[in-house]
Design a protein around this nucleic acid. Structure first.
Lengths: 113, 113
DNA sequence: ACGTCGTGCAAGCACAGGGTTGCAGGTCAA
DNA sequence: TTGACCTGCAACCCTGTGCTTGCACGACGT
């Protein structure tokens, strides 16, 4: 709270989580079907433990959902947080562009003199 | 190219760049006005060189625009890449949700028996 | 009861990257 | 010309983290 939150911290956190290739590979699978860590470890070139950590992270930020199924733990991708993030980014991006076009308008008036 | 691009690599790259608090602080400023590295260094709690690296990164991925003004170099935030990214994320997120609701539909039919 | 399979915890390694300091070169105004 | 200011390059530190291996525990099927 000492630094004014220029941007909602969760946006930064979400982007950071999404800034990893391996996690996208995992999400790509979880987007089409639920899978466990062991399962994913068989089709991806990383160890099960590495994947388990990624899954925990994804679940923490709400990009994936954990679900016990007997002795195994399956995960599935959740789109809500992603579309939510998309909304925020779109708003911010449009804000920047709006300022830009306003600047252009001003610039076109100055050379009048 | 050895790994099939489950997701456009530039998305991962963009998210990674957006996954840093300091860069968002910089973008927050550049979104409202153009500024140089030295200028930003005065209002942010990091050195000019650190900021310069961030600015170079931001320009590389198209989130900021470099512009010489005499002896100084100003940067301004660009919204295009951000809204572009937002579109992709939204599409992906909706895809996941669509699969989810399809699963639910199926699940509601099974208990019929 | 047994072997198999999936999970969880822990220690540890190695690299990327965010940050710093220091110095040299250029540009502007007085 | 001189001094102030901005930029660029380079070396360096250090924390975070992505990944690994190893082991113990628990659940399942035969």
């Amino acid at each position: 709270m000492t630094a004014r939150p220029a941007v909602d911290g969760s946006i930064v956190e979400l982007c950071a989580v999404l800034g990893d290739e391996t996690r996208w590979q995992i999400l790509a699978v979880l987007g089409s079907r639920a899978a466990s860590a062991s399962e994913l470890a068989r089709e991806l070139p990383v160890s099960r433990q590495a994947i388990a950590k990624h899954l925990e992270l994804l679940a923490q930020v709400g990009l994936a959902e954990r679900e016990r199924a007997g002795r195994e733990v399956r995960y599935r991708a959740l789109g809500a947080r992603l579309t939510e993030l998309a909304d925020h980014l779109e708003t911010i991006g449009r804000g920047w562009e709006a300022r830009l076009s306003r600047l252009k308008d001003v610039a076109e008036q100055l050379p009048r003199q």
